[in-house]
Amino acid sequence: MSDQHDFVAALLDPERDCPAELSSWNGADPSSRFAVYRNNVISSLVNALADSFPVVLQLVGDEFFRAMAQVHVHANPPRTRILAEYGEAFPAFIEGFPPASSLPYLADVARLEFLRIQAYHSADTAPLNAEQITTALSQPDRLDGMTLELHPSAAVLSSNFAIVSLWAAHQGEMAIAQVDPLRAEHALVLRNRLDVEVMGIRHGAALFIQALRTGQCFGEAAEQALAIDPEFDLSHLLAHLISTGALTGYRFAP
């Protein structure tokens, strides 16, 4: 095995001896110095996760979070050199982490936080302007067959838990005591200019947006959403998507 292979194996496994060929000028045990690298690698990645998942951290406390994140870093070290991308596997890890099982909503809160990061760094795409929107909506007979493009940041997360309320409570937007975590909620994540917004939406709205995302046409998407959720207010959702710059393109059926 190569030198760097041994070095990495020892970095990631605290039980392993430090690489044999390290030395120190004063005869100090090289492992006492190698420990600096071990600590740098693990603590910098734990810190990166703490920065990316602040609500998860608040929900479990600093000590628990760091212990959990450390297990994750050892099990799933980054396979990307871009730290904004690290953490994608963290929600699934949390889901399977037995000590966190008393907080069944934790993994979905983590999913919501990672969607926020992705939205924050997603591509800049210009929204439809007023003229384009007027053109698109002024032909009602062609509306049903129209497909809509959404801003790259737009994402929906449907959860069996109150992820939007839990998230809002940790932004100081509502009291945590008011939150029933076991109530299902649907989140719309969207970057509006420079700010990422998280909004609770109805089940029908979530279905509608997901249908648009998969390229279904407007009529089909609306029909499916209304079949499941008859109270879904399509015009209200469209107004919101327009005002937040989430509609970036449209195409009429040929």
Binding site: D3, Q4, H5, F7, V8, L11, E21, Y37, N40, V41, S44, L45, A48, P77, P78, R79, T80, R81, L83
Partner: peptide, 17 residues
């Protein structure tokens, strides 16, 4: 320095011989 090994990224600046 090196900070990767194959697919792994270690997020630290590691020494070379």
């Amino acid at each position: 320095a090196w900070s990767s090994h194959g697919e792994l990224f270690l997020n630290d600046l590691l020494p070379v011989a």
